[in-house]
Structures are given as structure tokens and as C-alpha cells.
Design a protein around this nucleic acid. Structure first.
Lengths: 236, 236
DNA sequence: CTCATCTTGAACCGAACAGTTCAAGATGAG
DNA sequence: CTCATCTTGAACTGTTCGGTTCAAGATGAG
């Protein structure tokens, strides 16, 4: 195994990312990374850098991969803001439901470890959280929410999304995680005005169905591919 | 410093708890604990047990201390469910605002580290999360919410409460954390029925004020003591 | 004062840690 | 085949880890 050939850096990065994702920075040793990637310690240092550098690359990879999915989900916000936000949460819920991926969220875990991480890594994680807020804020404004309301909901929805990372690690079932999201979506539906979006009607009699959102949300919930990590190309 | 006298175990436990709270289990060494408590390594082992035992005691201490506060906040749920839940969140927001305490939440941090913690510790942390759900569920039922709605909101509100731990570590301001909570409270107010509780009216014109909740919530928001950790007796 | 009790600092152990280096060997391009 | 290139296993360094032990000394009850 040498000569001109090279191992697949993308695959190795994915394996390292999943290792950090599951165990966090402090509880991941270079030996763990060696085992997870199947690479020798020497190869890791020569090809992926030291532990801190590798973690940064994994965090960047994670942020880009799921950031793109969140962006795609919210891209229809101008037309169908509620469906867009529902699709946004489906990105997270699908990821958690994927048995090939750890529970939780690499960004959330990194942010929680902020006080003991290198400043650069901590800043990058905070930046990722801020980007989620910006994404949601932009989408909600495109969905014609009042500025003040868009700001409040963007903050709220970003927080609810992060809460899924914590709750999924606490053993909360997929149905319960869905309930967490549905309450937030219901509140958003009311803020958007009950007339142009369907609500899940947690708090009262369901309004006459407008049948313009249901199919879309169903499609976004069940029609997405399994999203296996290894099936993606290297992004960095 | 010997003979019959003894150091204050309660104070030492508080210091250890804060150290674990800030840095997490993996990133806290026994030397860190020694430095934080001012106790010698020998004294820690003889009086507080090994690292795992000590962490369990700290987790128990944390869960009891704030569990009592959450219970007290929700105790008025039958009369004023919205004010009770607002007071519930104020427990968390006040804790985060306290400059003498770390951001985040020991339970949330422990739950996030579940895959790499001893099974007993992980189970205890999960149990604490479940207890929060039960607290809220009971309170909401006492507040005469429909069973199904109470269940959904209990799950949602428990998640939102955990989200504050993540967001506070991401540098989110106190005002933004308040916004996260306010959106959830607004949704709850609507579920409870706009007639007997005041809403913060994020989504439309404010209804005629009923002036039965405002003073209570203001008092619970600003009238609580600084809640310094060191001022409590040992609970274990 | 006497002496049992407790705290303290320091040392020690085996293990795991991050990080680095290097010779040996496998590989494939020419 | 030849040989430059790359991977590999292994070893090594210095540090920190959790955990334990112990003698010295401080203390206060009797």
C-alpha cells in the first residue's frame, strides 16, 4: 500500500468527524482517530495535521455540509415560509434519525466545550451558531414576517434546533423530538398568519385545510435520501 | 490546620461542582479539583471520593438545588400557569445571568457527553432531564391544559430550557435568551387560552390587559435573590 | 501537657496522552 | 527492471492522568 496510490482523504475526514462528533474533542485521542480512520498515526499527522487542525477541518466540514442542507431547506421561504422552516428542522431530525450518524450535533457539543477549547475553534463554533440565526432571520423576512417578529423567531427557532442535539442525547424519542419542533412550528404558523399556512392546531380547532403546504412538508420529511456521510465528496 | 477541625465539605462540593460545570468531566483533572477546592489531593480522595464518585455527588447536588427552585417556580401552576412557567424559565435565566456561576448547565453538558461517561452517571443525567419533563407536565395539567397539549408543551418547554444552556455558551446575550423564552411563553399563553393569562403579543395586537399576571412575572424576574452557590448548605 | 485525630505536601506507580521521527517495505510510473 | 514516492509499523520523548501511600506536623480534647 504505497507508491503512487493514496487513501481517500474525504473518507478519512468523515470518519474523524464522526469520531469527534460522538465523543467530543477532549475524549477523542489521536489513537481513537487512528482507529476510526484506519490510518496510521504518522499518516494522520502528515495528511490531516495535528489534533487541533484536524478538529477544525472536521468542524468546517460539518458546518458546510449541513449548512448547505439548511440553506436548501430555507430556499423556498419566500413562497412557503412554514414549509421552509419545517424542512429546516427535518434536516436536523433526519440527521438524528440516521443510525449511521451519532446523536447530538458537533457544533452544539463544541459550543458546550467552549471554555476549554482553543480560542480559534471556539470562535468558529460560535460563528456557526450565529450563521444559523442569520439563515433563519433572512428566511423569515423573506416570508414577510415583521422585522421584530422575524428576529425573535429566528432566535427562538435557532435555539429549538440546538435543543434537539441535547434532547437526542438524553434518550428522547423521535416522536418527542418531533413534538418539540411541532410546537415551535405551530407558534410560527400563527405568527405568519393562519390564513396562508397550515397549522398543526395544537391549541384549538383546526382551521379549514388550505392544502398548499401538506404535500410539500410530507415530501421534505420522507423524500430525502439517506444522506450517508461517506457518499459526499471532500469539501475542504 | 488539623486536629479536630474540618474543612467545609459543602463549600468544597460547590467548588468542585462549578469546576465540573465549567469544564465538563473529561476536561477536569483531579489537580483542577484540588486547585478549585483548595484541598489536597489526599483530602479529596479521603473526603469526597474518587473522580467519578465526586462527579456523581456534584451532579446530584446540582439536580437537587435547581430542581427545588424549578419546583418552587411551578408550584403556583394551578392558579397561574403562565406565570409559573415564566418563573420556571427565570430560574434558568437568573442562573445564567449570575456572574459567579458558569454559563451552560451541568446536566446539559453531562447529557452531551453521554457516549463517553460511565453508565451510571449518564443514566442519572438522563433521569434529571426526564424529571424536568415530568415537572412541566404536572404543572401544565394542573394549569388545566388538555392532556395531549400538556404533553407536547412539557416536551417543548423542557427542550427550550435546555437550549438556553447551549445558546448561553454560544455568546447569546441575555436579551436574546429572553426572546427565546418569550416566544415559547407566547405560544403557551395561546394554548392556555388568551382569556385568563396575559400574552406578550408577538404575533398581533395586544389584547386588553387583564393585569393579573404582569406584577407576578415582574416580581419573579427581578425580585429573586442573587442565589450564590456558597450560601447554601450541603444537601447530600 | 498528652495524645489521638486529622490535614498536608510530596512522592510514587502504571497507564494513557500528544506529538515526532525513521527505517523498511510496498507500489506503480517510466 | 529501476527508482522515486508514499505508507506503514514501531519506537521514543516528555507530559499528564487517576489513584494511592506515607511520614511529618498541626490541632484541640481530655
Amino acid at each position: 500500500m504505497a507508491g503512487r496510490k493514496q487513501f481517500d482523504i474525504a473518507t478519512a475526514l468523515d470518519a474523524a468527524m464522526i469520531q469527534f462528533w460522538r465523543s467530543g474533542y477532549a475524549d477523542t485521542s489521536v489513537d481513537d482517530l487512528s482507529r476510526a480512520t484506519g490510518l496510521n498515526r504518522s499518516s494522520i499527522y502528515s495528511s490531516l495535521g495535528d489534533k487541533d487542525t484536524l478538529f477544525t477541518r472536521c468542524l468546517e466540514r460539518y458546518a458546510t455540509r449541513y449548512g448547505d442542507k439548511y440553506d436548501a431547506a430555507l430556499s423556498r421561504a419566500a413562497d412557503r415560509p412554514l414549509a421552509a422552516v419545517r424542512a429546516f428542522f427535518d434536516v436536523t431530525l433526519d440527521r438524528i434519525a440516521d443510525p449511521g450518524l451519532p446523536d447530538g450535533c458537533l457544533v452544539a457539543q463544541t459550543v458546550m466545550a467552549t471554555p476549554v477549547l482553543s480560542p480559534g475553534v471556539a470562535a468558529r463554533a460560535r460563528e456557526a451558531i450565529g450563521l444559523q440565526h442569520t439563515r433563519l432571520r433572512t428566511a423569515l423576512e423573506a416570508g414577510r414576517l415583521r422585522d421584530e417578529t422575524a428576529e425573535s423567531f429566528a432566535t427562538h427557532l435557532a435555539a429549538v434546533n440546538q435543543s434537539l442535539a441535547v434532547m437526542s442525547r438524553a434518550g428522547t424519542s423521535a416522536d418527542q423530538l418531533r413534538a418539540v419542533v411541532d410546537v415551535a412550528l405551530d407558534a410560527l404558523a400563527r405568527a405568519l398568519g393562519a390564513s396562508d399556512e397550515d397549522a398543526t392546531s395544537l391549541t384549538g380547532p383546526r382551521p379549514v385545510p388550505e392544502h398548499d403546504e401538506g404535500p410539500v412538508s410530507d415530501a421534505s420529511r420522507t423524500g430525502s435520501p439517506p444522506a450517508t456521510v461517506a457518499s459526499r465528496d471532500d469539501r475542504i
